[in-house]
Design a protein around this nucleic acid. Sequence first.
RNA 1: GGAGGGCUCGCCUAGUGGCCGAUGGCGGCGGUCUUGAAAACCGCUACAGGUUCACCCCUGUCGUGGGUUCGAAUCCCACGCCCUCCGCCA
Length: 418
Amino acid sequence: MIDLKLLRDDPDRVRASQLARGDDPALVDALLAADGARRAAVTAGDQLRGAQKEASSSVRGASPEERPAVLERAKALAAQVKEAEASQAAAEVALRAAHLAIPNVVLPGVPPGGEADFEVLEQVGQIPSYEFAVKDHLEVGERLKAIDTERGAKVSGSRFAFLTGPGALLELALVNHAMAVAQRHGLVPVIAPALVRPEAMEGTGFLGAHASEVYKLEADDLYLVGTSEVPLAAFHSDEILDALPVRYAGFSSCFRREAGSHGKDTRGIIRVHQFDKVEMFAFVPLEEAEAEHARLLELEKAFLTDLELTFRVIDTAAGDLGSSAARKFDCEAWLPSQERWLELTSTSNCTDFQARRLGIRHRTTEGVRPVATLNGTLCAIGRTIAVLLEVHQREDGSVHVPAALRPYLGGVAELTPA
RNA sequence: GGAGGGCUCGCCUAGUGGCCGAUGGCGGCGGUCUUGAAAACCGCUACAGGUUCACCCCUGUCGUGGGUUCGAAUCCCACGCCCUCCGCCA
């Protein structure tokens, strides 16, 4: 939810943000109108309630003669209060609906436009070249007996895979390395629930435009999370935090319906319904959000560098931001088999948008204020394995293991087909 | 799945129709005292909304929603959540 004070003070900024995202600026005016209507309803209700309160407390002191008249007056006011409360409730509902319709206000500097309008900030490493015909990650993985998509499909359907042998060990190594890095930088390791209540899902903004991406367990009114951002954000919901910053690194399985991506990335494990991920999450004062965002990006870059991958960093365009994000940086690694960049990590500055919905605040000298929330991928494991297998493959089918991962793999320097 | 118990201000707790936004303790903050600290004593100590430059003031909030009533933390109904015991179970 955006800050209504900002909207009142500077509606043009919100309109400009809507335009940059390619969303309807008229929604901003609808929200302004709903806000005004609610305020009028609240004021009217407060006055009536005050009068009614006075009337009912005068009932006790009334003499027997005047009692019937006083009671009559109090009753009449009670009826009016009831009406006023009904219209106040209606105004609140209308305001909330209008409020939820507006995504976060983008930060200055975010490129306007859609998915293709990102800005490349930097490239780390050289695009690798190979003196043999590169295989894609599935072929490499199958020869290593690390990935089994056929049995994944047999057991669970399309877009499911088994990680076996070296594949499974690689996952554990990546998790361990990610958690070690996280701890070294002061993030608290967390194993998060993958099933959450509707409030958590809604509060993080995943039930809006992307609701069809989400698995829901109807019988239990629970959702399967698509990222541990959801449980990590909701971890402190309805709390007033004493000391900031608070930083976590959460591990969980992630579930995505991939409803709108038929025919896209169908091969291998680049786009599957279930994968595991280590996600960073930070709660900081609003003024420190941008600095924290830079910090999360640095951690992501360092992690990819540890894995000896080539990647570029992009500043995502406004229209490609999630509804909660005010700015988003993606790290995209080079995928040799397709000779293209593939998103491996993503870090979003959600400013106070999620915190407002989730009721996460902290005390400042000016009072209790919503915090800023930020998230960032430390390691999306399945996709990272896919890229590692491709980038570090050799002609003989073996795969070079980056030095950073060796301690977690019994010291081996390469994976070889059995 | 079966049977009970409970949800009040950061934590614990008092409170069975108007004098309750709500008692007391702990914790926290400020002050007195002290070279400093502790102890003791005094004071302050929820959030949201409306109005306001600000103070004041007004309104709402005792798990949530509804009902009864002139008036509800207190009575009624529904729901949610937490806990305990039994059963089952990684």
